[in-house]
Design a protein around this nucleic acid. Structure first.
Lengths: 207, 207
DNA sequence: CGGGAGATTGAGCCCCGTCAAAAACAGTGG
DNA sequence: CCACTGTTTTTGACGGGGCTCAATCTCCCG
């Protein structure tokens, strides 16, 4: 399938010699972008598509710590080695930004790292203190906002991905979807798209 | 009570004009260091004691996103406003580091922010995919490591704080403590201290 | 039409939350 | 040192939300 997303503005385009932008790489759905233990050779910016970043427990349990969509930057690491896996959720274009020396472009990437930290802390609240309905509601609103606040939007990821992001099982995710649909809060035009009919009701669920 | 902790090395001591270190402030147990919505006027470094950083849901549910102990830096924010509460868990000394302009000392604080991000992502795995015993085991090992890896160490925080950090209830935390004690994995010399008797067993529980 | 992966739905169970009571602890004053 | 009080922790009984296991359904893509 041809990936025809338009490119997002690159905040690094004016960096000068600090961050060196590379041509975008294409990854088909499911392709690994980097793996646990690999050496870090830069940070990544999503051009189009969607990326999941996750860790595994030894028994196979998976926790997706974040999805990254167009324009977002990911792949920060602390000691030169990746501690997570990153894979394309759907057909995805990723631009690699080489950091040629320690501290390169840190002025520019600090706010991006901070944003990632805020997102992670936000998600801690969801995983630590919200029930299944609240988690799914928060997820749907987050996805809608990141796609421009439209009431109809795509879900690039499978139920399994959603479950591993929300700390639930696919069955529970599916049941919550069905319940929200039945209540008229959402509509599911297809498996991978959602229409929010009652935004207000959704908000009330994730407080 | 006199706070007699020795001061930890300050990574900002050699910053020059970028970060301006202030004299340490003292906070008694329970005192608020900053609150949600307050303006940011710097970042904070723990001199001694322990700090909890948390958010609240509208119905009062609380999620502690991190505890910060001696030497650690916290209070990073993205838009000039605090989105969390920070309170002293026990009698605590905190040094405020004023950042006089955007980007100040970012070279120095980037690794600290990255470390916070790694910690948060690590904790996402715990909250999303581990059961009560695994959560408590991970917590105990983390606390032990942060106090030098001793087999006997202090718990500055209450059961309620531990519960709100691990996404559990105080009853469940207490029950897990009792079970671990009964199995001989830990000993509880007092309410606020722990001895790890079988480190290996603890590790096996949080995989 | 058939095959396979993903998604939905159902039945049963278990972990953990809730509610309640007892126990341990900390602080105060006598 | 002890008695008294309020807070924190522990322990118990019980119920429910979400997980497990399993069957069915839907959607692709040949």
């Amino acid at each position: 399938m041809a990936a025809s997303g338009k490119l997002h503005p690159n905040p690094f385009s004016g960096l000068g010699p600090d961050g060196t932008a590379q041509p975008a790489c294409f990854y088909p759905a499911g392709a690994e972008i980097y793996g646990q233990g690999e050496k870090v050779d830069g940070i990544y910016q999503v051009e189009f598509g969607c990326v999941r970043v996750y860790r595994l427990l030894s028994d196979g349990r998976r926790q997706i710590s974040a999805f990254h969509m167009g324009g977002e930057v990911f792949g920060f690491e602390v000691d030169g080695t990746h501690h997570f896996f990153a894979e394309a959720v759907s057909a995805t274009g990723v631009r690699v930004i080489k950091l040629t020396a320690v501290g390169d472009a840190s002025q520019a990437i600090l706010p991006l790292v901070l944003q990632g930290l805020v997102r992670a802390q936000e998600h801690l609240l969801v995983l630590g203190r919200q029930n299944a309905v609240e988690r799914v509601a928060a997820f749907l609103m987050d996805m809608a906002e990141r796609q421009g606040g439209l009431e109809v939007f795509d879900l690039p990821m499978s139920r399994s991905d959603i479950a591993d992001y929300l700390g639930l099982t696919i069955e529970t995710v599916s049941r919550v979807f069905s319940k929200l649909k039945q209540k008229g809060v959402i509509r599911l035009p297809s498996l991978r798209s959602v229409e929010i009919k009652k935004w207000q009701a959704l908000q009330g669920m994730s407080e």
